[in-house]
Design a protein around this nucleic acid. Structure first.
Length: 553
RNA sequence: GCGCCCAUGGCUCAGCUGGAUAGAGCGUCGGACUACGAAUCCGAAGGUCCUAGGUUCGAAUCCUAGUGGGCGUACCA
């Protein structure tokens, strides 16, 4: 509906320009929005005010001319009013609303999809945690947000690939191997003090136990031989665990990309040399610096240390080059907010490679405060005590976990309360929307028992749907595609849960005031179709979130 | 010190990229089940949108300076 009105305005302004009612030639971006106040119509546009300064004329006069040139061929409009400082308020005819439901019927489970992505290839990289320990609650939020951004983009016509970058090179990997080695020695009965800077968690002991099962005591006095074997075994095993945990959360990647590979095939060295030839990298003794200040970073960054070892940043440069070489038009990185200082140098890096700044988008995910009944759950990574993704998923369930992670703007801190998330009560928003869906399914079962068929659009008299609650429900159903588009554009998944919540609320309100299955067979059919449409939208929206839409609860 | 993020009813948060009288949920108070699921609905109370300036027809939203909180400022990842 909104798009139709934008079209009407565009044509009208075009006419105005031709017949001299407006000066100039350019049509500005036309915005149509939903007014808060019912008295301000169903939709409103501020276009006359936007044009006022360039037209050097009063907004209300401009509005009059625009309104005068609107030709409502589809007969959508009850009336148009010019109000306030120059708003154009549109009042839609009652019978124009229900025709909108035809789209839901036609598209079914594809309702809400769009083509705004235009086939652009996008990579969403997320989680990317070191394989040095199990994923904890903080990773879970990033995992779900990345996954849903991918879903939303995919539904919006982008070609999306989900990728996990494995930091399986560098110092922390040696640390992992050593940690296992010391636990291994402990199992052998050696009296050693486990170093503070090693990984403390109990999972290291399990890994050491497995190593002993497979290799016996042959590494007991062969530390140099042990470390590579133990590192590889531990990293592989931990990564497998990570994959399993992610799967319980419903997160599956198209590709796991190994940092180690970038070194094996010389990608890191090659790109560093190339950038050096191009003057973006300079040497200072043995140290190599990337001139990120040339692109607005606050200081240059080391890519190769004095001792010859490349930094993490060096591998990241090679990795991002690799992404674009694989043909991704746009790259989206979902990072923990503690990495925000890293953004300028990555943007410098891709610009040095000849890409535009916008080809890399970074979505920052703020930390999660884990609570239980309002009290903080103590966590210390250092002591290896953290609540893992698996524990959370097993305790509260996949649906509640995902929904709770998605409810807040990713850029703000999130309180995740285990008790609330698993409570099957009105305090838990996920049940509110699932209940709406289950309730609709229940009504339809009931209708079937009474001999009704579940109607399609062609079977109903849509003009019967004129009650306020019916119109509100149709309106909100109709806005779903715009919500998805906006969410894709802004990379803001939280808009979807807010939307479903509103939709569920309007539905529940409708339900409590109007009986769907009644003596009036025609009205019953029309309303069955209406709630069926609502259920379709709830299902489609929940699917974007990776949350189930149960038929009974 | 410098940089980034955040600040909206008692609590947790939205606010569609500058629009008209700032909205939800929880909590509080008061109502609605012998009609399709009460995990629901209806109503009420509750706000200097952190502060002070500025930009303009118009600011919670943009700019500047403060205040308070989080994070980052490594040849760690």
């Amino acid at each position: 509906m909104k798009n139709k009105l934008v079209e009407l305005l565009k044509q009208s302004i075009d006419n105005c320009l031709k017949n001299g009612d407006l000066k100039g030639t350019e049509i500005p971006l036309i915005e149509v929005e939903l007014p808060r106040e019912g008295a301000h119509g169903d939709y409103a546009s501020n276009i006359a005010m936007v044009l006022a300064s360039s037209q050097r004329n009063a907004p209300r006069k401009i509005a009059e001319r625009i309104v005068g040139n609107i030709s409502d061929n589809e007969k959508l409009l009850e009336k148009i009013e010019i109000a306030g400082p120059g708003f154009i308020n549109f009042f839609i005819k009652n019978n124009a609303w229900s025709t909108l439901l035809k789209e839901v019927d036609r598209l079914g489970d594809r309702y809400g999809e769009s083509k705004i992505g235009n086939g652009l290839k996008v990579q969403v990289e997320f989680v990317s945690a070191n394989p040095t320990g199990p994923l904890h609650i903080g990773h879970a939020r990033g995992a779900v947000i990345g996954d849903v951004i991918a879903n939303i983009l995919s539904a919006s016509g982008f070609l999306v690939s989900r990728e996990y970058y494995i930091n399986d090179a560098g110092n922390q990997m040696n640390m992992l191997g050593e940690s296992v080695y010391y636990r291994y020695l402990e199992l052998m009965g050696e009296n050693i003090s486990f170093p503070d800077n090693c990984y403390q968690g109990d999972y290291i002991k399990d890994l050491a136990f497995e190593v002993r099962e497979n290799h016996g005591d042959r590494f007991r006095s062969d530390k140099d031989g042990a470390i590579p074997v133990m590192t590889e075994y531990a990293a592989g095993s931990i990564l497998e665990g990570i994959k399993e945990d992610l799967e319980t959360l419903g997160v599956v990647f198209n590709r796991y990309f190994s940092e180690k590979e970038l070194y094996k095939n010389n990608s890191v060295e090659d790109i560093l040399n190339k950038l050096q030839e191009e003057g973006f990298i300079y040497k200072e003794g043995a140290t190599r610096w990337f001139k990120t200040t040339a692109f607005g970073d606050e200081k240059d960054r080391v890519v190769v240390r004095e001792n010859g070892a490349p930094t993490y940043f060096a591998a990241d440069i090679a990795y991002h080059l690799n992404k674009y070489e694989r043909g991704f038009d746009k790259v989206i990185n979902v990072w923990g907010a503690d990495h925000h200082g890293y953004i300028p140098r990555m943007q410098a890096c891709i610009q040095a490679m000849g890409r535009k700044k916008e080809d890399l988008a970074v979505v920052l995910v703020q930390l999660v405060n884990l609570l239980r009944g309002g009290l903080p759950v103590p966590m210390s990574t250092r002591a290896g005590e953290f609540v893992t993704i698996r524990e959370v998923t097993e305790e509260v369930g996949k649906d509640a976990a995902r929904y709770n992670f998605l409810m807040r703007r990713s850029n703000s801190h999130l309180d995740f309360d285990l008790e609330l998330a698993k409570a099957q009560s009105n305090e838990n928003p996920v049940y509110y929307v699932q209940y709406a869906h289950a309730r609709i399914c229940s009504i339809m079962r009931n209708a079937l028992e009474q001999g009704y068929q579940i109607p399609e659009y062609k079977d109903i008299s849509s003009e019967l749907l004129t009650a306020d609650e019916e119109r509100d429900l149709i309106k909100i159903i109709n806005s779903f595609p715009e919500i998805v588009e906006g969410s894709a554009h802004a990379l803001e998944p939280h808009r979807i849960p807010y939307y479903i919540n509103d939709l569920a609320s309007v539905f529940h309100g409708f339900y409590n005031k109007n009986k769907v299955v009644s003596d009036n067979a025609e009205l019953t059919k029309a309303r069955l179709f209406l709630i069926k449409s609502a259920a379709t939208v709830i299902r489609n929206a929940l699917k974007l979130l990776g949350v189930s839409a149960p038929e009974r609860m």
